[in-house]
Amino acid sequence: MGSVGDLAARLGIDGMAVNHVDWSAVESSLGLTLPDDYKALVEIFPDGRFQGFIRLIRPGAVGSPTAEYLGYYVQRLQDMREWRDDEPDRFPYPIFPEPGGLLPWGVSHRAGLLFWLTDGDDPSKWPIVVAHPEFEHWAAHDGPVSAFLDDVVSDRFDGDPYDIDLGGDPFFQPTPEGPDPALSAPTPAWLTPGLTDERPYDATAELAELVPPPALRRSIDWAAVQELLGLPLPADYRAFMEIYGPGTFCDITILPPEELPSLVERTFRKATSNPMRLPQICVPVFPEPSGMLAWGETADGWTCGWMPLDPENPDAWGTVMADPEVLGHQLHTELSMSSLLLKYAAAEGSGYALGRDMPWQGAPTFVSRT
């Protein structure tokens, strides 16, 4: 396996093939032979993210047939070509199936794409091209994919064009599957103070009445979002993104789905690097069992998140506010994202601070991200 086996050993993954793929059928769907190291990565590694940053595109992705490589990404490439028609300077490379065109092999934490430049008859020599999610910046790297991923987990990747720090110990984060066995464990100390008999409810309609949203309604492919994130998201968050879009509600900035993995990663690193953290008391952070999934940030550095106590029912997730050091927290198992925002906005400075020292002051507002 060469560098693929070395990479697997470094990341604690058994080097034996566990995923069996009909590569002849997959490659026939493309009309191309794929690099051997990529195929070995797919066979050895489960679905997941390298250093919380890169997820491999796998045959059958986003609900497409298992013998298809591109599936959903056919449309992503078509979108790129249509965008190029309007802004040709934004795309410096041909796009598959054009000769030597960009063929995606990975997805970044912000839903950006990583490509092979399929130039030449030897796929093992295809260069790697990393694109900003909006294709504003590009960076070329030597292949193969396994060597590139080794650079990523070894902190030899400088983050271009994302400008992020991927330092820290190498890790691979598998995509969660099925219910979390930790949910049957005794109630931890961090959960007890906020536990109530109430359950979250969708307050989107009341929220829109209190703070009228922009007139333009958005269309989002939520099946693709779930495939990229590895889990479903609550209905009220989906409705918020379609009705309001990303932006700042009062002083809470709510991120779009493609930016959630980056916030989750930052929160996890902040929490686990703090020597004062006591795991039995402090709120857990994803990918820890039942860990907080961040969806927003306040102006003074608090993190807003969901508590996914029932992974199969995101509409039952309560919310939590974690302080800037992710040491203290305020748990609201009775509040969904929308009902938390409603209660916060309707307080109009009366002191409902959601666990923070300073509540929002003044009338509720929403400022859309431009």
Rank of each mutant, 00 (worst) to 15 (best):
E334D: 11
G230V: 07
T267W: 07
G328C: 02
W105Y: 06
D150M: 13
D6G: 14
M1E: 13
T196V: 14
R76I: 10
V283R: 03
P261T: 08
A346P: 00
D315L: 08
L340V: 03
T253Y: 07
A9E: 15
D300W: 07
L278W: 00
G291L: 13
Y244T: 05
A208W: 03
A17S: 15
Q330D: 07
W317P: 08
D169C: 09
L11M: 12
W83A: 11
H20T: 15
P287F: 01
F249H: 09
F172M: 08
I128V: 06
Q75R: 14
A203D: 06
E136G: 14
I13F: 04
D6Y: 07
R10G: 11
Q51D: 06
P46Q: 05
D163S: 14
D121N: 08
R110D: 08
F50P: 02
R156G: 15
M307W: 15
G194C: 15
E198P: 02
G31L: 13
T118D: 02
A316S: 15
E136C: 06
V62I: 10
G100S: 12
D158C: 05
G194V: 06
D155C: 03
V42D: 13
E288H: 03
R266D: 07
Q173C: 07
V367R: 11
P289S: 11
A139S: 15
P188L: 02
V107C: 05
W116P: 08
F171E: 12
T365F: 13
P97M: 00
K270D: 04
E87K: 09
G112H: 01
E82S: 06
L56E: 02
S219L: 12
A205M: 08
Y237I: 10
P133V: 01
I254Q: 01
P92Q: 06
P104W: 00
S24I: 09
P94K: 05
S290A: 15
P284M: 03
N274K: 01
L166I: 13
S3R: 11
G2A: 10
P144Y: 08
G328A: 13
H109S: 02
G349L: 11
V225W: 14
P279V: 09
L41R: 11
L293H: 04
Y93I: 00
D221F: 02
L341P: 09
V145I: 15
E198A: 15
N274L: 05
A347W: 00
S184E: 12
G349P: 12
P212R: 01
S184Y: 08
T204Q: 03
T267F: 04
L342G: 00
R55C: 02
L32Q: 09
T272R: 05
L195R: 08
G60D: 08
M241W: 05
G101F: 04
M276G: 10
R218Y: 01
V283F: 08
A8N: 10
G48Y: 06
F172R: 13
Y38N: 05
Y72K: 14
A347M: 01
G296K: 11
A203M: 06
L340D: 03
E206W: 09
D47M: 01
E43R: 14
P179F: 02
